[in-house]
């Protein structure tokens, strides 16, 4: 891939901007673009994506953690399941047939497309349940919000699946975790996003260690990708408010559909 770094950087920048405007990690778009445009092996694209997931999580974490939104205790409990999932996923991915990985990726893209239909902004009623009670200061109102956690077992199960998919396909997994934390576990959306973001970095590191040792983290791909996504996310968060999000969401869903078709095609033809 030597010599193509500027182009990889530019594409990652656009993906990072789009992702941050929609609140979705860039991995779902990055991998189809890297494989489709550069003819890159899917495992190299996954390696680059997982590194950019870590970079994004760490950069965003510096903001969220500073605001005290992250529920570190809950994150660590769920992280037992997530890292186990990521470990299993990472080890499976390096052994798995690339065509099968492409097929699985296509299926995940369809799921992401579907799940975007019910991205909600309002919070469930938050009550201290006595389980892992935490609180944070709402930045807009200055109000201190105290909340507890429901259905920890279901949360653990979902976390394992999210970690597994993250390790297998090099995406963050927030698309699974945030809805579960918010809708099932009853966390305020803000805290769920911050906590999920914190977890994503740890999960991605677990599988990145596996990918690294198998030589799938190629600096000439991973570094421009990570830098591009980081810079793009900064740009995206600044222009995000100006664009009509409904139109943007439809565009994104359209892209996902195209990429899913591309991945299924790849799975069949190799």
């Amino acid at each position: 891939m030597h010599g193509q770094e500027p182009l990889i950087f530019a594409i990652a920048l656009i993906v990072g901007a789009l992702g941050s405007m929609l609140g979705i990690g860039g991995g779902v778009l990055l991998i189809p673009l890297l494989t489709g445009l550069f003819g890159m092996p899917i495992k190299t694209a996954i390696g680059a994506s997982i590194v950019s997931v870590i970079a994004t999580s760490s950069a965003a974490g510096a903001v969220y953690v500073g605001r005290g939104l992250t529920h570190t205790r809950l994150a660590m409990v769920l992280e037992i399941a997530t890292t186990l999932g990521a470990l299993a996923g990472g080890i499976t991915a390096v052994l798995l047939n690339p065509n099968l990985l492409a097929g699985l990726f296509g299926a995940v893209l369809i799921y992401v497309m579907y799940s975007m239909r019910r991205l909600r902004k309002e919070d469930p009623a938050t009550v201290p349940t006595g389980l892992l009670t935490a609180h944070y200061t709402e930045p807009l109102t200055g109000q201190v919000i105290t909340y507890g956690v429901h259905h920890l077992t279901r949360g653990l199960a979902a976390s394992f699946v999210a970690g597994n998919i993250s390790g297998l396909l090099g995406i963050g997994g927030g698309i699974i975790k945030v809805p579960v934390m918010s809708l099932v576990m009853g966390m305020p959306l803000r805290a769920a996003i911050a906590t999920s973001n914190f977890m994503i970095g740890i999960t991605a590191a677990t599988s990145a260690i596996v990918y690294f040792q198998h030589g799938y983290i190629d600096p000439s791909v991973a570094i421009p990708t990570a830098l591009g996504v980081l810079v793009g996310a900064q740009i995206g968060s600044r222009i995000g408010g100006r664009l009509r999000s409904q139109r943007l969401k439809q565009l994104f869903q359209g892209l996902l559909l195209v990429f899913a078709a591309q991945m299924f095609y790849r799975a069949i033809t190799g």
Binding site: V51, I54, S57, S58, G201, I202, A205, I209, F212, P219
Partner: peptide
């Protein structure tokens, strides 16, 4: 890259 991976 290793340091980046090690950060989390």
């Amino acid at each position: 890259l290793l340091v980046l991976i090690a950060t989390p």
